[in-house]
Simulated assay, not measured.
Amino acid sequence: MNLLVSTDWLAAEMGKTDLRIIDATLFLPAMARNARAEFEAAHIPGAVFFDIEEVSDTSNPLPSMLPPAEKFASRCQALGLGDGSRIVVYDNSPLRSAARVWWMLNLFGAHEVAILDGGFGKWQAEGRAVESGKPIVRHRHFTVWADKALVRDMGQMTENLRTKAEQVVDARGAGRFTGAEPDPRPGVRPGHMPGSRNIPYSALFNEDGTYKPPAEIKALFDAANIDLSKPVTATCGSGITAPVLAFGAALLGKTNVAVYDGSWSEWGAHPHNPVVTGA
């Protein structure tokens, strides 16, 4: 299974006993939309809803932080996701939140995970079948595992300012990165980490929500002076869109891009962390 699968491919594979489909739609509060309600109104047949906000470390004041491995495995089992499953993730969100769940699944030990190119929007635009309601699933075993090589914390990001061992690429929009726009979170300063580069996650997509061809994605990394032959860590506002850049790099063959889970909602809120404004 490729990392990126088409709607034609998914339609042809539906019904296979090892295939699992996840709706990973997430909206910000300001969007005034309810992802679970929209899922129950219409989703790809056989899909289950992955609640990113709930499958998180809910004891952490930061948004949508990674949950303990045991919680992640438990939630996956309840969704019918298990060892040996081929998993296709999609979303219907401007945040392209399928990439967050793709990253989480890889971090917690799933072996075959793909993203549906164009997501639910493309599926619907093509007039393909949808269903409504809550799916009935059978629990499956999901082995507890966590590959912490794919995640960074604030201490590691601070140490990287000294060592410069890893390139840091920021997925936020240019206005947020430069500090020209205020951060939407109270108490979070605008700007970016010293030495980080900017590739807005939205730049990786065509107008129809499909990913751009690999050559165009590679050109984005090149333009930001990110060398994919060297270590890379992605960051964003709250850890949701940074995985889009990690996925884009994976499409180019670099599958080990780490994500700073706390991202700017953590970094920019700490008064002692250095912050840079401007391009």
Rank of each mutant, 00 (worst) to 15 (best):
E38R: 08
V55D: 06
H111N: 14
N106L: 13
Y90D: 03
Y90W: 11
A73Y: 10
E40C: 06
D57R: 00
L95Y: 04
H111R: 15
R96C: 12
G15C: 09
E70G: 03
V89M: 04
I115K: 01
P61H: 08
P94I: 07
F50N: 00
E13T: 09
V55A: 01
G15V: 05
R100I: 11
W102N: 00
A114H: 05
L116H: 06
M65L: 14
R100H: 12
N92M: 08
W103S: 03
L79Q: 07
N34C: 12
I115S: 01
L19W: 09
T58F: 10
V89I: 14
P29A: 06
L19V: 10
A99V: 09
V101N: 05
A114P: 06
L105A: 09
F49G: 00
G82H: 06
G109M: 08
N106Q: 15
E54T: 14
S64A: 15
I21E: 08
A73T: 06
L66H: 11
I87G: 06
P45Y: 12
F27V: 01
V48C: 04
H43W: 06
L107Q: 11
I52F: 02
G46A: 08
A42P: 02
S85N: 15
A37K: 15
P29F: 13
H111Q: 15
L116A: 07
A47F: 09
A37S: 15
T17S: 15
L95N: 14
I87C: 10
D91P: 02
P94R: 07
G118L: 01
M31A: 11
I87E: 10
S93C: 03
F72T: 04
E13G: 01
P63D: 08
A99K: 00
R75L: 10
G46K: 05
I22P: 03
G119P: 01
P61Y: 13
S97Q: 06
L95P: 00
S85G: 09
E38Q: 15
L95K: 04
V55E: 08
D83S: 14
A47N: 04
S85Y: 12
L95Q: 10
M65W: 02
R86S: 13
F108R: 01
L26Q: 07
V89A: 02
I44K: 00
R75M: 13
A37M: 13
A42E: 14
H111C: 07
N92D: 15
G46V: 07
F120V: 04
Y90P: 04
P94G: 08
A35M: 11
Q77C: 14
L26M: 13
A114C: 10
F50A: 00
R33D: 11
M14C: 09
D83P: 08
D23P: 03
K16Y: 08
L66T: 06
F108P: 01
L28W: 06
T25G: 04
V48G: 00
D117C: 02
